[in-house]
Design a binder for these strands. Structure first.
Length: 499
RNA sequence: GGCCCUAUCGUCUAGUGGUUAGGACGACAGGUUUUCAUCCUGUAAACCGGAGUUCGAUUCUCCGUGGGGCUACCA
């Protein structure tokens, strides 16, 4: 059975690149009826934090990615946190020790650094000299007597290692260019390259799908696994996600924390769709997919090799698309937190809402109507709060000259607003709907031989105070007859005073 | 510096030993609309360079060049 894994280290918030790697692993496992495992690589005690683990889990769940085994759900190959597997690593470290494949290195970090600097200066590749490899017992005793601590190094075999990368084909390394890597700080503290090999083997991982930045780790891990007598998994190295300048995606240039995107009003559907297209494409020209659909059509052999620039404009397009495609009741539920955050509304105990500025009580249905006003305009969910401000104030303020459409005088404006008031007031409260208002007003416009713009532009500005907004026919019923008429009367006053 | 990866419109990409090199985002122009958005139509926009193989290379090979990754007692 195919088993893939995501092995993030909880040293920061869930990175968008990590999320994409998780997505590819998840999709590949699902596509082939396999299992997907989450493993937390928290061997770095200083930098790992539980809150980051929580952020990673939350972010992945938000995207709709779920795992069959992991620290939160358990499973037959646990524990799934490396910090809880120390005794396991210890055992294999001992095995390597008995095989005489590891040795203690007493060099201090300062010594190693100096060595590296000297090599760089001499235009030599920086490599550990291997000076501690052949230390005699006596010499070791002396060094320990001096109070020196040691780390454990692996006696890297010198030979040619080849990996048959699922995405890139054969990659060959000559490990003679490698030095003896440190695989553990001490018997209790294994390091990444060592722990990974053991866990992937013990957890029966069949396919290691990870970022291209791990290619150079692969020969080391292969060698280690070989020495331990492990069978090797298959590897597939994904292209990196890039900044606009084509360097590795960084928080200097982009938002990289997944949940930041959520907080800004991106939909998980949009993120998933956007992310899957960064380095993968479907057989036809199709670009719109749900996660469910991807589980059926994803394939590793259509993954590209070259890095992909993170194109925010396209993400925005996907997001707007999925906002438009979301049923209004769901969209409303997703928008409410943004309206609350913007202090437009507060939530009441009985399930109703109060408009902060006016203390008017509204129901969920009213909110649906409000949100639907912006549904086809929003790029992000946060847009409903910023674009709809005029609905959440007593009276929007604006420059009276805004009311004039295409060279109209303010006299004209007053006349048109009066005309509107007259026809709107003839519509009863319960008839005050979008379609009826539109029908009546347009009839009146035609009858009076007016142009749409000369009536509708002042109408819209009177209601919103903005040059761009939804149709006044849709805003008016949302505001209600009373408020609509009040705003038109206010506009008339403004126009008059400015003459 | 060493090792490794990589190369089609601005971006994400499709594709082929012979194609008008296709799509999407973005840009631009037009239509629709009271405005914005949506929607519709259209336009501009690419095979990194040089050799080789071949009747023919964007496609295959090699060499450059560009870009990137790694080069930690991080993962």
């Amino acid at each position: 059975m195919i088993r893939t894994r995501m092995a993030p280290s909880p040293t920061g918030f869930l990175h968008i690149g990590t999320a994409r790697t998780a997505l590819f692993n998840y999709l590949f496992a699902r596509k082939h009826g396999g299992r997907f495992v989450l493993r937390i690589e928290d061997t770095d005690k200083d930098r790992s934090r539980r809150e980051f683990e929580a952020d990673i889990i939350e972010g992945l769940h938000w995207l709709g990615i779920h795992w069959d085994e992991g620290p939160d759900v358990g499973g037959p190959h646990g524990p799934y946190r490396q910090s809880e597997r120390i005794t396991i690593y210890k055992k294999y470290l001992m095995q390597l020790y008995e095989q005489d494949l590891v040795y203690s290195c007493y060099c201090t970090q300062e010594e190693l650094e100096r060595e590296r600097e000297l090599q760089m200066l001499a235009k030599q590749p920086p490599r550990y000299s291997g000076i501690c490899r052949g230390l005699s017992d006596a010499k070791r005793k002396t060094l320990e007597g001096q109070g020196r601590t040691s780390v454990l190094r692996f006696k890297t075999p010198q030979r040619v290692v080849s990996i048959a990368d699922l995405i890139r084909g054969d990659i060959t390394f000559d490990t003679a260019t490698l030095d003896d890597m440190i695989i553990a700080k001490n018997i209790e503290t294994p390091l990444f390259n060592f722990a990974v090999v053991i866990d992937d083997f013990l957890m029966n991982i069949t396919h290691v799908i990870r970022g291209e930045d791990h290619i150079s780790n692969t020969p080391k891990q292969l060698l280690l696994g070989e020495s331990l007598g492990f069978s090797a998994p298959l590897f597939g190295h994904l292209p990196l996600i890039l900044n606009t300048d084509r360097t590795k995606l960084s928080k200097r240039q982009n938002k990289v924390s997944l949940l930041e995107y959520k907080n800004e009003g991106y939909l998980s559907e949009a993120i998933v769709n956007f992310l899957v297209l960064l380095g993968w494409s479907a057989e036809n020209d199709r670009e719109l997919f749900s996660l469910d659909e991807l589980e059926n059509i994803f394939s590793l052999d259509r993954v590209h090799k070259a890095g992909a620039v993170f194109n925010l404009a396209k993400l925005d397009w996907f997001n707007a698309h999925y906002i438009r495609a979301t049923p209004i009741d769901i969209l409303t539920a997703r928008c409410i937190p943004f309206l609350v955050d913007a202090h437009h509304i507060t939530h009441n105990d009985d399930g109703s809402y109060t408009i902060t500025a006016t203390q008017r009580t509204i129901e969920i249905n009213d909110l649906r109507q409000i949100v639907s006003l912006e549904q086809q305009r929003m790029k992000k969910l946060s847009g409903c709060a910023s674009a709809l401000g005029y609905l959440f104030v007593d009276q929007p303020h604006y420059d009276a000259s805004l009311l004039a459409w295409k060279g109209m005088t303010l006299d004209d404006v007053v006349a048109q607003l009066l005309f509107l008031e007259q026809h709107l007031s003839e519509i009863s409260e319960d008839q005050f709907t979008s379609s009826i208002i539109e029908q009546r007003v347009k009839e009146a416009i035609a009858l009076a031989d007016k142009k749409n713009g000369e009536v509708l532009w002042p109408f819209r500005v009177a209601l919103t105070g903005q040059t761009a907004s939804p149709s006044p026919f849709d805003i008016a019923p949302t505001l209600g007859k009373t408020l609509t008429l009040r705003r038109i009367a206010y506009a008339r006053e403004r126009a008059r005073t400015l003459q």
